[in-house]
């Protein structure tokens, strides 16, 4: 395989909420252009990893660089799709309005979105198949539709790297296929995608890169070579024993 550029590099990342570390000394290099799953049991720190990369959580130690520069200087290259449940969907706003929020970062302070931003938002809505719902109040969308809106919002950012926190959670089969097709398309365009994923069955089918995580990094690499029973046991199996003993 040809040498790839490193899109995301994480050094010695350690995160703790209280005394117990949630993430311990994570070193991770994510090559450009992969569609990577982060897998691991509940409480393994998958969401925490993404959140600390993006500066939402403050790590105790460690650094993150994007294409060789500190994350803070490279924000415009990074888009984020949070967990659907992280916001209040009864908020008084429309689907189009939420997608427009993806343009706020490039707009900067005070400037308002205009025609150009609106056009970009409409295009993103069309890509995720939600154009017909653009004026719908967001509480009247189904779970799958809400997830697509979040995806569209990230698409508008036109980033190089996408972080997604369980985009397939609670969506039906149609939406799941629609979303994965969009992700594959993005990869084809040379984007890097990092996805917190729960369904182990679909990993080989959807992703080409995988990271096993359980507080520590267990393994990372191409799905073809490292997605095997050994790593799965290391990630899930040991933890099961521990939880039974407790």
């Amino acid at each position: 395989m040809k040498e790839r550029k490193i899109a995301v590099k994480i050094d010695d990342l350690t995160v703790a909420y209280n005394y117990k570390p949630v993430l311990w000394d994570i070193d991770l290099e994510i090559p450009e252009g992969v569609l990577m799953a982060i897998v691991g049991p509940n409480g393994a720190g998958k969401s925490t990893l993404i959140k600390s990369i993006l500066g939402i959580l403050k790590p105790i130690a460690g650094s993150v660089s994007i294409y060789g520069k500190p994350y803070k200087k490279q924000r415009s290259l990074v888009a984020y799709v949070p967990q659907k449940g992280s916001v209040d969907w009864d908020f008084p706003t429309t689907a189009l309005d939420v997608v427009k929020m993806g343009t706020y970062g490039s707009l900067g302070w005070i400037k308002r979105p205009r025609q150009k931003e609106k056009k970009a938002a409409l295009e993103a809505l069309e890509k995720v198949g939600m154009l017909a719902f653009k004026n719908r109040q967001i509480s009247q969308l189904s779970g799958g539709q809400q997830q697509r809106i979040f995806l569209a919002r990230a698409l508008v950012q036109n980033a190089a790297i996408y972080f997604m926190d369980e985009p397939f959670q609670g969506v039906d089969a149609t939406t799941e296929i629609a979303i994965i097709n969009i992700l594959k398309e993005l990869r084809k365009a040379g984007k890097t995608l990092i996805v917190v994923h729960h369904d182990l069955q679909t990993v080989p089918e959807y992703f080409d890169w995988v990271t096993f995580l359980n507080v520590k990094k267990i393994a990372t690499g191409p799905v073809k070579t490292i997605f095997n029973n050994e790593n799965l046991t290391k990630t899930y199996g040991i933890n099961y024993k521990v939880s039974v003993q407790e």
């Binding site: 993006l54 924000r75 706003t93 929020m101």
Partner: peptide
């Protein structure tokens, strides 16, 4: 714009 973004999704506002 900033108020709306913060009220709806504060973490996303941070990443922007």
């Amino acid at each position: 714009k900033e108020f709306k973004l913060l009220l709806f999704d504060i973490n996303y506002a941070k990443t922007l």
